[in-house]
Design a protein around this nucleic acid. Structure first.
Lengths: 144, 144
DNA sequence: CTTCAATTGTTGAATATTCAATATTTTCAA
DNA sequence: TTGAAAATATTGAATATTCAACAATTGAAG
């Protein structure tokens, strides 16, 4: 039986929040070199397969809710990193595509992100990293 | 060497964000029974040792930055869950304490949180959970 | 001692996020 | 085929968060 007076630092929810905050902070720092928030990098990365992705699909993939995504996409359209196309098969939908400029930026961001992953691998270890990834994937799976 | 064209779902930063989001969502759902956001539960839990904690200390512990914490504490003071006392030894500091009402609420919240941890233990497994916690702690350590 | 820098917490303006309502299109049952 | 319900995306108002500036106190060097 779990103890209800356990310190906050022993709760899984807290450890996840703390680790997420720290890793995200580090990534943010790298990406800020290009002046791009983490969410925009995620969006570019998802779109970089060249296929059109609907807003709903994208919102799920990048962990943003719909109105927030709409407003972020508005900014990215202004910056000509992405563009909207109405889905010809279902006119309720909007398909998002990455622009050439977006692709160029995405490549730079990818390399900054890889820098970070390599930094983690060094300080945290190859074994721990892959084991942690495996456990996280399985936690996410078991939560659906 | 890490691949820069790896899908977003393979990045540690993304897996952490996804897992954190999901677990947090579940916890939020439980705590909403008492109408309390996760951050307020964390605050109450940290303060429930009865000692006075400065705002800075508290901000670190509950993963909020200072202005956000100040405003949240303002609300909690209005709800008489916590109260401020000027630190007699260093008058720049404010020491936060939990009220009796706060303690009562905290107990209820703890039991809701324990429900969730037990639910995770069931669906995810005892072994995986403790192994994941261990790896997260070690990741956090190695990031300082 | 005095002064200047550092620490601590709060405030207000700017920014971002969320909630509820809306508009449009599609689906599907009667 | 029509009308009601569901799905999709956006908008605007309400709310929350963040950034930069500030005020108060302490520390520490000269």
């Amino acid at each position: 039986m779990a103890k209800s007076n356990a310190p906050i630092t022993e709760h899984l929810a807290y450890l996840l929040a703390q680790a997420n905050r720290e890793i995200n902070r580090q990534l943010e720092l790298r990406l800020s070199k290009e002046g791009v928030p983490v969410e925009q990098w995620r969006i570019l990365k998802v779109l970089s397969d060249g296929d059109g992705h609907s807003m709903g699909e994208l919102a799920d993939a990048v962990l943003l809710n719909h109105p927030t995504l709409t407003k972020m996409i508005d900014r990215m359209v202004s910056d000509t990193l992405v563009y909207r196309v109405q889905d010809p098969n279902d006119r309720r939908k909007v398909l998002m595509f990455i622009s050439d400029r977006g692709k160029v930026l995405c490549r730079k961001l990818n390399s900054l992100a890889v820098d970070q992953e390599e930094h983690i691998l060094e300080s945290y270890g190859d074994k721990s990293t892959s084991e942690l990834k495996r456990l996280l994937e399985s936690l996410i799976d078991s939560s659906n």
